[in-house]
Write a protein that binds this DNA or RNA. Structure first.
Lengths: 175, 175
DNA sequence: GGATATTGATCAGTATGCTGACTATCAGTA
DNA sequence: TACTGATAGTCAGCATACTGATCAATATCC
């Protein structure tokens, strides 16, 4: 009786399981990694967008790394931020297209391209920094300062141990 | 003198910055999130692939959730695992194409599709579970059991606080 | 009961990420 | 020096993710 009346008023949560036959998502580090990343990207884009800029987290990291290492080639850039080398092509394409970076043929190695930040890129980086830093705070807003530090420490440790497990491990600039 | 000889013997790390003008990547939770996610996906695919299956983390989570909630619609599925509703279309497409799930028109709401796992899907889930669990261990292999627990706790806490900040927040099955 | 708002699903377009292949070039060696 | 292997960059193809739009169907409100 009661059940029937509930079904009429709140049409059928009948498919909702009360128990999970598999481990709960919240106990799976892989799922938590995906969720946190998803939120981190959304927060970054929102903060940076609010500041009036159109730059993705990936493009930001690439641009900042080009600025810090003028003249580096694309493989080195990829290694410094752990991007796949096939991904970096498109990212640099877009930075160049936006006028934030330049891609020149290398004089030392005709296979390689030397990357350089433009004045416009430098200006953008400078003006965007507060939004980027704000984003980092927002994505940790549920944690105390101490917890945020601990989260970063554990992530760093797990990442270091797993560095070689992805196709695009972090690499030093120097071989 | 020493500097010069080093430069001669190890040709030109000239573009490598000694100091970073921006915050180091390793202090950016967004960067760490991306790296950890990258490793987590690679580990999942490797473990599951070694076990002889061709299923992505996303497809696995969707399939497990369909099994746990037979007959659910795509929006509910998306909410339960925090996927964007435009993403779920393609994911379900591939599960259906692989014969692991079925998509039927709903009788209660002609806009909606009811999702069901197939016997093949059930078999796959059962056989794949050890590899999935192994993957979760591997991606935390740099951490002690206690540290792994703490990492998950902090991720859960940060995610809960940021849930509404992404386009695809986690939702209960029941509105 | 009819206008209005909302919702489920899909689509086009863009941006990561990856696999695997390919070209051009470079480096080391027999 | 010719051969071999490695390397820098790119491409095609596939799978997430997202923005913003559209269509059909349902809910809601007056």
């Amino acid at each position: 009786m009661l059940t029937i009346s509930i079904l009429v008023n709140h049409p059928a949560p009948s498919f909702v399981a009360t128990e999970n036959p598999v481990k709960d998502n919240n106990d799976m580090p892989g799922h938590l990694a995906r969720r946190f990343q998803q939120i981190a990207v959304a927060v970054f884009l929102a903060e940076v967008g609010d500041a009036g800029f159109d730059l993705t987290p990936v493009q930001y990291a690439a641009l900042a790394t080009i600025k810090a290492n003028p003249g580096l080639d694309q493989v080195t850039l990829a290694g410094l931020i752990a991007y796949d080398r096939t991904t970096i092509t498109g990212v640099v394409d877009r930075l160049v297209q936006k006028g934030l970076a330049e891609r020149r043929a290398s004089s030392r190695d005709r296979r390689a391209r030397e990357l350089e930040i433009t004045d416009e890129g430098r200006r953008t980086l400078r003006k965007i920094t507060p939004a980027v830093e704000s984003a980092q705070r927002v994505m940790l807003r549920g944690l105390s300062a101490k917890e945020g530090e601990e989260l970063m420490r554990l992530l760093r440790k797990a990442i270091a141990a797993g560095n070689e497990l992805s196709r695009a491990p972090l690499r030093d600039a120097q071989a």
